[in-house]
Design a protein around this nucleic acid. Sequence first.
DNA 1: CAGCATCCTTCCTGATACTG
DNA 2: CAGTATCAGGAAGGATGCTG
Lengths: 146, 146
Amino acid sequence: MRKENSTNALNERKLHIDCGIAHTLSLISGRWKASILWRLQDTKLRYNELKKAIEGISERVLVLQLRELENDNLVKRVIYPEVPPRVEYELTPLGLSMVAMLRHISDWGILHLKEAAKKETAAAIPEKTTIAVKPIKKAAVLAIAR
Amino acid sequence: MRKENSTNALNERKLHIDCGIAHTLSLISGRWKASILWRLQDTKLRYNELKKAIEGISERVLVLQLRELENDNLVKRVIYPEVPPRVEYELTPLGLSMVAMLRHISDWGILHLKEAAKKETAAAIPEKTTIAVKPIKKAAVLAIAR
DNA sequence: CAGCATCCTTCCTGATACTG
DNA sequence: CAGTATCAGGAAGGATGCTG
């Protein structure tokens, strides 16, 4: 069970009033949600196909995230009453529009990675914080391995 | 200290290779990062101004997220060597482009909220899962209060 | 096949008190 | 003013075993 009035929960709710951003982010901020949507962008997939396609995800989490995606109307769950059972997942129109947005995000990310790489190679330039030198070291793990 | 080889960490790393999406999302998936960027979109702000502007954030977290944003090159930290000390935060060009993307995301979110509302009112229509009836109840907390 | 139940770990976030 | 240090709570994610 979940504490309804933890400061944590309160903060979360407050953020959603802020604007649409927090809401949208919450839809795709599960670690695997983007991957799931991505895999579904041009095919239906069965539960097990998803499980295999998304290497490393556990059953529990896969189900959880699928359910959330379904509740958020991004994914449709189609049950075929057969034996053995068959369930296919596909994107809703909204899900499709979300994937389109993900593509934007992806593009931006690639750009950012390039920028970061540039900075990395041009590391000779010392200034990052102006006037004073940046006091935080924290092993700059900007690269992909991050 | 952080376990380097937990499955968790491994999965996280693996995802980043997937494509730019996970990377980008990681940049803004801190609960407050979007808010911070949003607040900075057309002004510089001092530490305390940010703290006041973003109601509910704790000092620790504010600093942490600012540092990450800085490391990711979205925010610039400008120190004025005065007494009392003054530090201003502002967006980098990359940060600005990120905010532009956030606006996209926001728009999408608003659209999604509208869709959800429509579904809510038109709840008379029973089908959501095709063929079979959706078996999961899980109190549809789709609305803003979610 | 598709997925639920249970238990456990890891990590994130926040409260509070203190400092150059 | 702009933080740091320390501690605690909780939520997300994972491993495994079992079922209609």
